[in-house]
Simulated assay, not measured.
Amino acid sequence: MATSQGSAPGAGPEDRVGEGSPAPMADPADQLARLGRSWVWLLGAALASLVPGVLALVWPDVTLHVLGVLIGVYLLAIGVFRFVAVFGRDSGERVPDLIVAVLCVLGGVLCLRNPLQTIAVLSLIVGAVWLVSGIVTLYTAIATKNMAHRGVVMAVAALGIVAGIVVLALPAESARTLTRLLGLWLVLLGLAEAAVALAWRSALRRAGVTGRDASGPAT
């Protein structure tokens, strides 16, 4: 790796990067920030919602145990995606998203710890996560004036709020009913999130940002 052009002429070996010196390690926070701002990462988060939603719709006759595991894995995956996305935001905008990420992880752990939850408990966990996540996303979109594709993000947030209210307000009488209800909303949320990712990709291309530099302000 090349030495810094600003080094002093009389610097000793300990102050220079020699040919045999190991390359400096990249800052993990910077790596996470680049990943969190990438449109590919946003698309991955969309697929994390879309895939279980499709599975739930094409396989509605799942047992309560399988449903609990499916919801738990989904919430954990979404929590990880949101946690990484936190690093792509300004420091002042990180706290709300971090709260949502922790909430998703906690909900996933609760579902996986005891997959044989009652239908009411599973509905409560998913509905609460969607409602809080939608409210936080809507608040962020309103507060961030220069957010790219702000209207699309607000629409996704509103969809999440509606999904949370519907799941909380409409009690499911069977695992089959809950599976179809969750599958429908997961597909809708996944498609909406995929639209945000593709819109962000389009914005990056118009700005001439491609390849490894295809990152920017988090949407």
Rank of each mutant, 00 (worst) to 15 (best):
Q5L: 14
S7W: 08
S7G: 05
S7T: 12
P13D: 08
P13I: 07
E14P: 07
G18R: 08
G18P: 00
G18L: 12
G18E: 11
S21N: 13
A26S: 14
A29Y: 11
L32I: 08
L32W: 08
L32Y: 05
R37G: 15
W39Y: 10
W39A: 11
W41R: 00
L43P: 02
G44R: 10
A45L: 10
L50V: 05
V51R: 04
G53D: 06
V54H: 01
W59P: 07
D61T: 09
V62L: 15
V62D: 08
T63H: 03
T63R: 11
H65T: 14
V66C: 06
V66R: 11
I71Y: 05
G72D: 01
G72I: 02
G72P: 00
A77F: 11
V80D: 02
F81T: 03
G88Q: 02
R89W: 04
R94V: 07
A101R: 00
L106N: 03
G107M: 04
V109K: 03
C111G: 01
N114Y: 11
L124C: 11
I125D: 01
W130V: 05
W130Y: 12
L131V: 05
I135F: 07
T140E: 15
I142T: 09
I142S: 08
K145Q: 14
R150I: 01
G151E: 10
V152T: 08
V152G: 08
V152C: 06
V153F: 04
A157V: 01
L159Y: 02
A163D: 03
I165C: 12
V166P: 03
P171R: 12
A172F: 04
A172Q: 01
E173P: 00
R176I: 14
L181E: 12
G183C: 06
W185H: 09
L186M: 12
L189W: 02
L191K: 00
A192V: 02
E193G: 06
A195H: 08
A197F: 00
W200R: 14
A203H: 14
R205D: 12
R206N: 08
G208W: 03
S215A: 14
